Amino acid sequence: MAKNRKTPDMNLPVWFDGQNINEALFCEEFLHERRIIFTNGAFFTPDGRVTDDLPLRGEIYDKLKFCAVNNIPRKITNILEVLKLEAQVPDFPPEQDRIHVFNGTLLLNGTFTEGRPAIVRSRLPVVYNPDAPAPVIWLNFLNGLLHAEDIPTLQEFIGYCLIPSNKGQRMMVIKGNGGEGKSQIGAVLSAIFGTNMKDGSIGKISENRFARADLEHILLCVDDDMRMEALRQTNYVKSIVTAQGKMDLERKGKQSYQGWMFARLLAFSNGDLQALYDRSDGFYRRQLVLTTKEKPVDRADDPDLAEKMKAEAEGIFLWAFEGLQRLVANNFKFTESDRIREN
């Protein structure tokens, strides 16, 4: 009597034989359908770096769920590991002459191309709209917060953070006595930078050798309330501010490696960023220090101010881009008022 041999089902995908999943073939097919690469320790797509792999796991699960195989979560983890090998490219250098935004790519010369055909390192969630109205609420807020001659410096610095470059060789500290509303700037920037910005601590960066690796691929690190004690060592902070190209990075329990570093540092503080032992001119010269105006006694604070300014994100982006173009034209030398030089 002939054995009841199972014939392959023509409707099954090439990577599934009815019982087992061939992970390499699955990854091959997945990469035909999905533009994704793996390099510098991360996946990148036309939307930028994959900061959370849950949606990617969801896509893989959607393709696998009809297969009656055991332990699908572990299978998905295995497939992700194989995908790293299949999608690997040697390197993915940052492009310093363009900004990838939600609806396309903007070159530094102002040329805009719609669409997102290419895989990119980072994509900002803001839409480029050359006809966006001026960000009136934002500009009024800055006029109340900073001295008029210091606003162009902030404009250039925010513009500087839009591209993956450290040519400006500066970090920014905005200091006041408290209550002026300076930390609202960080809330507004999160609407422009999205996952390309992270909250951090200058103190932690200076003390913890693993903290730098957390800033890999990040455009901007904001310290919302900088600690007042002087930094014991400044070399980690200085190396981030001046990094040109790759830097030696370390993660806990792993061999150190060379990674791209272009995170700019922006800190809000009630005092100066001091060094305990570093008395060199270099440490202080790398800081752009803006001082806020005194808070008016009779000012009524608007609890919805940050949300109103976030609604002006398209206009604020154009304003920052104008600052970036001015900075580039000035060979990455920031506009500095006499007050900033004294600081």
Rank of each mutant, 00 (worst) to 15 (best):
Y160I: 01
V188C: 11
E207H: 07
R123N: 09
I316T: 08
K246S: 04
N103C: 02
L142M: 10
E81S: 15
D9R: 10
I158L: 07
N331W: 04
E322N: 11
R339N: 06
E86Y: 08
I99W: 00
I158G: 05
E312S: 08
I21N: 02
W319G: 00
R49S: 08
Y128H: 13
E342K: 09
Q233Y: 08
P8R: 11
L318G: 00
S201T: 12
Q88V: 08
E59G: 07
I163V: 15
N208Y: 05
F283E: 10
V297W: 00
G115I: 04
L220R: 08
S183H: 05
G58E: 10
E180A: 07
T153H: 06
L273E: 04
E229A: 15
Q287A: 15
T77H: 14
L31W: 10
N129S: 12
E81D: 15
N20D: 13
K308F: 02
S201H: 07
L145S: 10
G323E: 05
W15D: 10
R57L: 07
Y160L: 03
G104Y: 03
R209H: 10
M226P: 03
A311T: 00
I151K: 03
Q88G: 09
N235Q: 13
Q155L: 03
H32W: 06
V289N: 10
L290H: 06
R341K: 15
S122A: 14
T111I: 12
